[in-house]
Each structure stands twice: as structure tokens, then as C-alpha cells.
Computed example of a mutant assay.
Amino acid sequence: MTSRHLAITMGDPAGIGPEIIVKACVGLKERIAKGDLRLLIIGSGAALDGAKSALGADVAIPEVTADDREWPDLCYLQADVEGDPIKPGVLSADGGRFAYKAIEQGVRLTQAGRTAAIVTAPLNKEALNKAGYHFPGHTEMLAHLTGVRGSVMLLAHGNMRVSHVSTHVALEDVPKRLTPERLRMVIDLTNDALRRLGIARPKIAIAALNPHAGEGGLFGRQDIDVSAPTIAKAVADGLDVVGPVPGDTIFVKLRAGQFDAAVAMYHDQGHIPVKLLGFQVDPATGRWQELSGVNITLGLPIIRTSVDHGTAFDIAGKGIANEHSLIEAIDYAERLAAGTSAAKS
């Protein structure tokens, strides 16, 4: 529990963001009523009202302003001026504009201490760029808005916690991104995040880049020349780090509880095992039945967690979106905020 609000940014109003936010508010209504949880939704009021109406949701979400001295435990802040109606499932520059403005407001409020963390619903990268905001995604946008040069993506589902040395780069560029400085940064930020989550002495495994960790240099030397010395230095500095562990076994061991987290070398190496366990699809219809997992950005001066899925324009406005990932992201934001407060006290 945190005494301050969590800022919930809507993402693209044309996606499933409004729907999963309303569903999460309904699911968390008892906690909110008790004062155990305080949420400030930032986005399009029209989209929020539309989702409430479509779902028949019996939940009051009054509008507030950023300058109000006190906010109700559940409320919303208009991110920007409404333009033409934003239709569910329809890509538009207005959708991208609202997504950016919501993040901008959330960053400002969290940096000012009004909100404890940002929890983000999904945005659409094409709409974002159509609106004139040229970022590959949330992570890069948040780094820009907070003035941070380097950040780290950590995915979490249950005890599967995986941070990444590189993410949105071509596979051929991955080896160049693996440097001693970058790997040590990822190790340190992962260790810090786990401690804030209540793990006193985290055990972190480093995935190998190459098959069989390079097989003595037969399949590449990055694991031998870069990863192994960096791991040894981290251990000498008092951290509990092991590796390089071959990529075909590290996640089996992580799931079995041998480690508290793993460090993946690139996007798909880390994303596939987490989503394999957290996502489920109906084999008959092809529709998603379960979307579980959280995306956490490490290295920012603020706490940011997110759903681990996209805008799902194909099902937006149909009332069938799954809110579980958002509820998980809210839980992680609470725990990280509480851990940060405890560390400062």
C-alpha cells in the first residue's frame, strides 16, 4: 500500500486501455473503497466514459485537475483537449497524441511527488509517430522525458523475472550491445529492483549469448571475453550472480526457483519464456484467454510498470479484453513504491 496515488496512463484510447482500466477499477473497488489503493487515471475522459457505458460498470471516476490539493481515491485527469471522437480499433494521430500527453502528465506528477509511480496501458507506435512523437515505444519516451540515457526492461510473470541487455534492435546488432558497462548496469539495476521487492539477497543468472555459452570459443567469444569477467567482478563486489548459463536451460532453472531473476541478452530470448507462461490462446477461436505479465522499466528516476501486451485494436470496444496484466502491473508498482519508501526511511 502507498499513501499516494498511482498514475494509470490510458495509452491509446482507441485500444483496450480504457476497457482494462475500467475493469481493473471494478475488480479493485473494495481496496479503493477502504483507502488501501488510490488511482489517478490519466487519458481521455470521453474514452473512459465510453468504456464505462459499454461495460455497464457501476464505478464512479470523477474528474480532477493537476492543481487540486486533494484527489478522491479514484479519479481521472484529462490528458489533453478532446478532438474528433476516437473510435475503438481505429488508428489515429489523436490516439497517439493522447497517449503521449498522458505519459507526459504522469511523469510530471510523479517527479513532483504527487503520484508514487506510473502504470501504463498500451500505446500504438504508429499512432504515436503519426502524432509527431517519434519514439519506438514507452521505454524510450520515458527515458527522454526523465532525461535518462540508459534504462533496462524487466519482464515479470510469477517467479519469472527477466531483464534485458538489449531490446528493440536487430539481431545482428545484439553482440555490439553486449559490453561490460551495459551488462554491469543491467545486473545492478536488476539487483536493486529485486531488493525493493523484498528479496534481501537476490540470486541473478546471466544468460549466454551464444549456444552452449560459446563452447570454449567455437561458437563465439562474447560469453568468455565479456560476460564471464563482468560476472566475476560483480561477484567480487558482493553480488550473487552466476553464469553465463546456456540459453536453452536458464529459464527452466529460473522457473524452478534456482534464481530470483535472469538477464537475457536480447528481446526474444527474454520475452518468449515469459509470454509462453503468461499468455494463453483459445485454440478454437484464436482469441487470447489470458494475458498475464508485467513490464518494468529500471533505471528511471521514477517507478514505471506496464502491461505486457499491446493495444489489441482488433478487440477494442468489444468488452472481451483481459485486465489481469494491468492489475499485476498495479501490484508491482505498489510493491516497488513501498520498497523505495522503506529504503529511504
Rank of each mutant, 00 (worst) to 15 (best):
I327W: 01
H157P: 01
A131Y: 14
E126R: 13
I199Y: 01
V169D: 06
V59N: 10
L218C: 01
L6R: 07
A127M: 14
N191S: 07
I296D: 02
D84I: 02
G95I: 11
R4C: 05
I330F: 01
K275W: 12
R38I: 08
V235M: 12
A116G: 11
C25A: 12
V64L: 10
V26E: 12
P246E: 05
L39T: 03
L91H: 02
T120F: 04
R177I: 00
G35W: 09
G339V: 06
I118S: 10
L171S: 01
Q258D: 00
E63M: 13
H267A: 04
A333H: 07
R182H: 14
L145E: 11
E104S: 13
K130S: 05
V119E: 06
I86G: 06
V90H: 10
V107C: 05
V174D: 05
E63K: 15
T285N: 06
A156H: 03
G243L: 08
L189Q: 15
S3A: 15
I250L: 14
I21N: 04
K101L: 10
T230I: 04
K344L: 14
D84C: 02
L218K: 13
W288H: 08
S92A: 02
D225R: 01
I118G: 10
D188Y: 01
A343H: 04
R97K: 13
G158L: 04
M141T: 03
E30I: 03
G11P: 11
A156I: 02
L28G: 10
H157G: 05
D36Y: 02
R182M: 10
H134C: 06
T285R: 08
I302V: 15
I272S: 14
P88Y: 12
R195G: 03
R304P: 09
I330S: 03
Q222L: 07
G50D: 04
L128H: 05
Q111I: 04
H138N: 07
A343M: 10
Q105P: 00
I315M: 08
V281M: 14
G27N: 14
E30G: 01
R97A: 07
G217L: 05
F259T: 00
D192W: 01
I32P: 02
T311Y: 09
I204P: 02
L276A: 14
A24L: 05
A312P: 08
I32A: 02
A329Q: 09
K233V: 07
